[in-house]
Design a protein around this nucleic acid. Sequence first.
DNA 1: CCGATATCGTCAACCACGTTGTCGATCTGG
DNA 2: CCAGATCGACAACGTGGTTGACGATATCGG
Lengths: 157, 157
Amino acid sequence: MSEPGWRVVLLLAGGFRDAVDALHGELAEQGHPEARPLHGFALQAIGPDGCTINELGQRLGVSKQAAAKTAAGLERAGYVARGSVSGDRRAVLLSRTSRAEEFLAASEAGFEHIMGRWRRHLGADRFDAMVEALAEVVGDGPVGDLPGWLSQTPTRR
Amino acid sequence: MSEPGWRVVLLLAGGFRDAVDALHGELAEQGHPEARPLHGFALQAIGPDGCTINELGQRLGVSKQAAAKTAAGLERAGYVARGSVSGDRRAVLLSRTSRAEEFLAASEAGFEHIMGRWRRHLGADRFDAMVEALAEVVGDGPVGDLPGWLSQTPTRR
DNA sequence: CCGATATCGTCAACCACGTTGTCGATCTGG
DNA sequence: CCAGATCGACAACGTGGTTGACGATATCGG
């Protein structure tokens, strides 16, 4: 009633933004100032065993060309190394560097930290209920691409 | 515990995406196939009385140049008309067209519809609790820009 | 009253991310 | 063994955002 439908949607977007912004604020102070939101998702998609560019594209839900660009950025930032796939000389194996592992660990800790703050603010019961409700309506389908605004360079900081 | 911090964030993003996608699915069927998510926010920012390009930029939290581009898109799509501001010959008054009002009404109804679905799925109590909790941690500060992925052209639909 | 300064909107570059189309190199299968 | 499918790269383009520069107009101060 007093909550027009669009307000809920704004809340979701705002929550996502707040959390991601806070995370990258922390990460920047921990030696990963140039990391962008997309990086975390992409590294997660690459997985501990690495994958090819095509696979990365499929996992992120984008074209292989887009995946190649993302991989290039990741490589430039020192988060991924390119290797070769035994048995297929045209494929490229993307694998995380130790810096990437460190980044992911920091990222995980950061999210935990931020969610801890939320949980403390709301109280465990309400927080858990919120998350559970969210999980039910959203359905944890494949994360998907998470495009766009994740991209913008942190210029206006 | 069983909910790593990042899952919550993914849920927020997923919820936003799901809702916006669903909305624009409906809108497309109601005569607004070319409308993109950003349009709704921009029209909302323009307000019933209109505003200048600069004001639009400030309200959306972007530069005036970006606002000008957005306004150009809105104009091209027939959602806004340009007029002049009495008393300042360099300013441009952006105002919503009747088509924009229609779009906003449909948008509002669409959100209401989609949120109604969520509410029905969760039960009013859980839904309301979720929204309330969200509102508390997010804080309904100025909506801000809502950039990026809102942008992508609905090619891959 | 007029010149210095501030502001409005535009243009031009440029970056990040997405898309499609093409193409050479390399598997793979009949 | 060659036709066809696939991998990854390049080019071109669309959308959103940014900064820098600039003409036109307002406004302020001497």
